[in-house]
Design a binder for these strands. Structure first.
Lengths: 341, 341
DNA sequence: AATTAGCAGTCGAACGGTTTGAGTGCTAAC
DNA sequence: GTTAGCACTCAAACCGTTCGACTGCTAATT
C-alpha cells in the first residue's frame, strides 16, 4: 500500500506528464503540487516509487515518467473525474441533438464529436448479439433491377441489388420471396461464413432464382464475417498531433494498426461489461494497440444490440477528460435510445 | 524548343529524381544516362535548363531537382509509357475479376488494388449526370419500421429507415407511396440542396406522413450535397512512406486535405474529359492538393453515370507506372461494364 | 564553336569536442 | 523523517573543423 504522500506524488507525476509529455522533476512537483515538503524529500519518494515499478527514469539527470503500471494505478485509484467544461458538455448535447437520423448517422456523429473534443481517435462498434433473419423482402424497382432486403431481429438491415430476369413478373417475385423466407427465416447470420451455394436445393423449377440466391448468400457472408458488427471510426490523424507520434515511422505504424477494423472492434468488445460500464486498457500488455490506451464504455441499443464507444489515444492520454466525455455521451445515447422505444 | 540533348538530360533528371528523391548531379547523368558526353557539358546544359525554369538548385553544391514545369513537360512530351510488369497486370486482372458484386464493391476493390500497386492514395468517384427520381418505394419490414427506397434514373439507390406509425396499415402505406410519387417523381436531386420542409403541403389529412417526409428530404439533401457523387478513397497512409512526408507536420497537412472528400471529388471530375481520357494535374498551380499531383482517367459506367479513377501522389510521382496502371484498370472496367449491359 | 579536363570555390552534412544546465543521489546536519 | 547542499551525470545545445559532393569557370582541345 502506498502512503498518502506517495500517492500524491505519483498523481502529480502522472498529471504533469499527461499535460506536458516531458519527464517530471522533483522541483516541479514541489512547486506545483506539494509546496509543503522539500524537493529532496520528494526525490527520496520518487526513488522508492521507481524501485516499486511506478516510475521510469530515462537517464540519470532527467526527471521521472510514469510507467504503464502507474497509469493503471492512476486510473484505478488516483484520478478524480469530471473535467468537462460546461461549454463542452453543451457542445456535445447540441451536436448530437441535431442528429436524430438513423443509427448509422448517430454512430458517425458520436465518433466525430468525441474525436473533436478529445483530439484522439474515436471508435463506435455496434454489435448484434443474436442476429437471426426475420424477413427477406424483394422489391421490384421498375428499372430492371430488384432490391433484396434482409431484415434481422436486431433491426439491422442489409441489402443489395440484383438484376431482374426478363421473365420475372410480380407473381414470380412474390413466389420467390415466399420461397426464400421458407429457407432462410430464423437462421442465424453467423451460419453463413462457410456456406456453400446450395445447388442441391435449386432444382430445375427454381433455376431462375440462381442470381437471387447468390446475392443473398453474398450479403449474408459479408455480415457473417464481421459477426454482426458495424464499426465506425474517426480521427485517426488527430493522433499525429501528439508528441508520441513525432516521427512518421511511428505515425505510420499507428495508422496501419487502425486499418484493422476487426482487431479494433475485438478490442472494444471482448470483455463484455454491463450497460454503462467503463473499461480502460493500457498498453499492449492489456491488449490495447502498441503504445496506446483504449477507453471503452458500453451502451445497450435495444434487446439484442449493444454498442461500444471507445477512445484510442496514447498511453499518456488525458483519462479524466476522456472518461468524462464518454460518460456524457453514453448518458445522451441511453436517453436517445430510451426515447426511441 | 529544347534540343534533343536537353530533352534527354531533362528526362534523366526527372527519372532519377522520381526514383531516388535526391538532387541529381551532372556526373550521375553522365554515368547512367549519357555516357557519350562529359559531365562538364551536361553541367552547361543543366545551367541553361535551370535558367529556363525547368530545374531548381537547392544550393550551389547540390545537384538539380525538377521544377513542376519540368514534371509537366515530362508528362507531356518526354515520358514513355507502359511500365507494368506482367505479374502486376495479372495481379490487377485477377483481383478485379473476383469482385463482380455491386458497383460499390468494385469501386472499393479498384481503389485497393491501385493503392497497393502504386503505393499512392487512390480515389474513385462515381458521378450521376442526371439524377432524377424515377420512383419512391415504401417497404414494410414487419418490425415496426419501414424502408424508404429512392430510385433515380441512373440506377442509384438511396435508402433509409423510418419508424412506422402504429396506425399505418398496408393500405395506408400504399396510399403514402402513391402520394410521394406524385410529388417527387421526375424531380432532379440537385433541387433539394436548400429545400425546406414543405409544411404547407402537409395538411391535416396527411399529418401522419411527417416523419416519412422528413426522412425522404433528408436523404435527398444528402445526395444533393454531393451532387450525386459517390467517393471511395483508399491508401491515404501509403503516402507517409514517401520522403516528402518525412516530417509529421507535412503528413498531417496531407491527411487533413484528404478528409475533404468534396474537394477531392471536385478535383477528379471538374474537367470533364471523354471516356478513357487521362488528365494529370501537377501541384497546387494546377489545382491539385498542395505538393501533390493527381492523375485521373474517366470511364463511362452507363447512360448517365460516369466514373473518375484517380491517383494522388507527390509531385515526384512515378507517372509512368501510375498512367499504365490506370490504363489497365480502365480497360478492365470498360470491359466489365460492357458485359454487364 | 562546341566540348572537355581540370581546378578553385561553395556549402551542407557529419564529426567531435566543449559548455551548459537540468536534475539526480548522497551526505551530513537539523 | 526532513532538508540543505554539493558533487556528479548526462542529454542537448553549441561551435569549429573537416569532408566531400557538386558546381562554375577557365583554358586547352577538337
Amino acid at each position: 500500500m502506498l502512503s498518502d504522500r506517495k500517492k500524491k506524488i505519483l498523481c502529480a507525476v502522472v498529471d504533469s506528464y499527461i499535460d506536458k509529455a516531458t519527464p517530471v522533476a522533483s522541483k516541479d512537483i514541489q512547486e506545483e503540487y506539494l509546496p509543503d515538503c522539500s524537493s529532496a524529500t520528494i526525490r527520496n519518494e520518487l526513488s522508492t516509487l521507481e524501485s516499486m515499478g511506478y516510475l521510469i527514469q530515462p537517464h540519470v539527470s532527467a526527471g521521472r515518467i510514469p510507467s504503464e503500471k502507474a497509469f493503471r494505478f492512476y486510473v484505478n485509484e488516483l484520478m478524480y473525474e469530471n473535467d468537462l467544461t460546461s461549454t463542452e458538455a453543451e457542445m456535445i448535447e447540441q451536436y448530437l441533438s441535431r442528429k436524430v437520423g438513423s443509427l448509422e448517422d448517430v454512430m458517425k456523429a458520436v465518433t466525430h464529436i468525441i474525436a473533436e473534443i478529445t483530439n484522439y481517435t474515436s471508435v463506435v462498434v455496434k454489435e448484434d448479439m443474436s442476429d437471426t433473419i426475420t424477413a427477406i423482402k424483394l422489391l421490384d424497382l421498375s428499372n430492371g433491377k430488384m432490391l433484396v432486403v434482409i431484415v434481422t431481429d436486431s433491426r439491422v438491415l442489409k441489402d443489395g441489388m440484383v438484376d431482374l430476369p426478363d421473365d420475372f413478373d410480380d407473381q414470380m417475385i412474390a413466389r420467390a420471396q415466399h420461397w426464400l423466407n421458407k429457407i432462410f427465416l430464423g437462421k442465424h447470420v453467423s451460419e453463413f461464413i462457410n456456406f456453400d451455394y446450395p445447388f442441391a436445393l435449386v432444382n430445375d423449377e427454381f433455376a431462375q432464382y440462381n442470381a437471387l440466391f447468390k446475392k443473398i448468400i453474398d450479403v449474408l457472408k459479408k455480415v457473417s464475417l464481421m459477426n454482426g458488427m458495424d464499426v465506425e471510426m474517426y480521427g485517426e490523424n488527430k493522433m499525429l498531433a501528439h508528441s508520441e507520434y513525432a516521427n512518421v515511422e511511428d505515425a505510420r505504424r499507428f495508422l496501419a494498426q487502425m486499418e484493422n477494423k476487426e482487431r479494433i472492434a475485438e478490442i472494444l468488445t471482448n470483455d463484455g461489461g454491463a450497460d454503462g460500464s467503463m473499461t480502460v486498457k493500457i498498453g499492449s500488455q492489456e491488449n490495447a494497440p502498441e503504445g496506446c490506451a483504449v477507453v471503452t464504455t458500453r451502451v445497450s441499443l435495444g434487446d439484442n444490440v449493444s454498442g461500444s464507444i471507445g477512445v484510442i489515444g496514447p498511453v499518456r492520454m488525458n483519462y479524466r477528460k476522456v472518461l468524462s466525455v464518454l460518460d456524457k455521451i453514453s448518458e445522451i445515447i441511453i436517453d436517445l435510445v430510451g426515447k426511441g422505444e
